[in-house]
């Protein structure tokens, strides 16, 4: 293998022995480096957390200011020495504040991608290619069936549907952190300036994005009374709310869901989605394979999703590759 023995998986999460810290640990630890604010990466209860300013703010808003005993905010590119390792965070392009972890020791460099994408996203800093010796990549959409279309074209589908069905409420399931704000931003960029209704679970993070310079236009909280006034309008909600009692108050509705999984018709059908929107904050197959080439690492570890296929691909390119089994990940938790 790479000969790098100072980073390895443990039941708690990926552990860097060189600096005695975990990356995105699932249970409380002494020292954690957190890549981004999604709940399957950022947990409460650690002693010390190092992350970007935005990620720490997201954790604070989700878990309270006391989510960790001590926090250390860093900017992209800022170098920090932790034990025997030099650590910096590089933008991952996944959601606001999302980062890759770049760790160096004794002339060797490891990059942990966290969740990432390389498509344009007006709400966060684009992915940075960091050449390395060992690349630890996510593989949520690590199969060649996943080739995401242009997000803007998907948004245009939604806008066309609003024109064709002006009598229907368009209920769109979106993840609260990232997908929601990215979708709104693309809608605004495509000339949709009508106020957008949002489920209560989406407001705090949308306000947070506004504070960090992402203008979202007028958002109206959905109330029992305002449900009646949503004909022909957009209502954004968490995906789980689509099938929930909450969604019954809308008389005539179309259920849409913005997710990379919507590429698979049967998946969309399983969730009774009528208007699937293939918009993903994860890298698709082409992005995953291009990134493996771009970072020029000799060794690839694959985690989070369809490990087998990406490992096979990397090996067929003559690289060392292995699946990295991490506990506690659910394949669809935050795609």
């Amino acid at each position: 293998m790479s000969g790098i023995d100072w980073i390895f998986p443990t039941p708690t999460g990926l552990y860097c022995a060189a600096g005695d810290f975990y990356i995105d640990p699932m249970s409380p630890v002494d020292r954690a480096v957190v890549t981004h604010g999604h709940a399957d990466h950022a947990r409460a209860g650690h002693q010390k957390v190092l992350a970007t300013t935005q990620t720490l703010a997201i954790m604070a808003s989700r878990y309270g200011e006391e989510h960790a005993r001590q926090t250390q905010a860093v900017n992209y590119g800022e170098q920090v020495t932790i034990g025997g390792a030099i650590v910096r965070l590089a933008p991952a392009g996944h959601v606001l504040g999302s980062a890759q972890v770049v760790i160096e020791k004794a002339g060797q460099r490891v990059v942990v991608s966290g969740d990432y994408k390389r498509r344009p996203d007006p709400t966060c800093t684009p992915f940075e290619v960091v050449p390395c010796d060992l690349f630890i990549t996510e593989a949520t959409f690590g199969l060649p069936v996943f080739r995401h279309p242009d997000a803007e074209e998907e948004v245009k589908k939604l806008l066309r549907s609003l024109l064709v069905f002006p009598e229907k409420t368009h209920l769109v399931g979106v993840y609260a952190l990232g997908k929601c704000q990215r979708l709104i931003r693309i809608l605004r960029d495509n000339g949709y300036d009508t106020p957008i209704f949002v489920h209560g679970a989406l407001t705090a993070l949308s306000d947070f994005y506004e504070q960090h310079g992402v203008a979202l236009g007028e958002l109206v909280p959905v109330t029992t009374e305002s449900k009646k006034a949503t004909k022909g309008r957009l209502v954004l909600c968490p995906p789980s709310a689509l099938a929930d009692r909450w969604s019954r108050g809308f008389s005539d509705r179309i259920a849409a869901l913005a997710s990379g999984w919507m590429l698979i018709r049967q998946r969309a059908k399983q969730r009774r989605v009528e208007l699937p929107l293939v918009i993903s904050d994860h890298a698709d197959w082409d992005e995953l394979t291009a990134t493996i080439t771009d970072v020029a690492a000799d060794t690839i570890w694959v985690t989070h999703g369809q490990e087998e296929a990406l490992v096979h691909y990397a090996r067929s390119c003559g690289l060392e590759a292995a699946p990295l089994a991490l506990q506690g990940r659910d394949e669809e938790s935050a795609a």
């Binding site: 060649p144 080739r147 698979i264 018709r265 049967q266 369809q306 296929a309 691909y313």
Partner: peptide, 24 residues
């Protein structure tokens, strides 16, 4: 046209031949 291993893994995952091939 496609690496047979990647095709098999994709088909296992998608569970529908027409859908797998049309996407891949």
């Amino acid at each position: 046209r496609v690496d047979p291993v990647l095709f098999r893994l994709s088909y296992d995952y998608v569970g529908d031949l027409a859908q797998t091939v049309s996407l891949i």
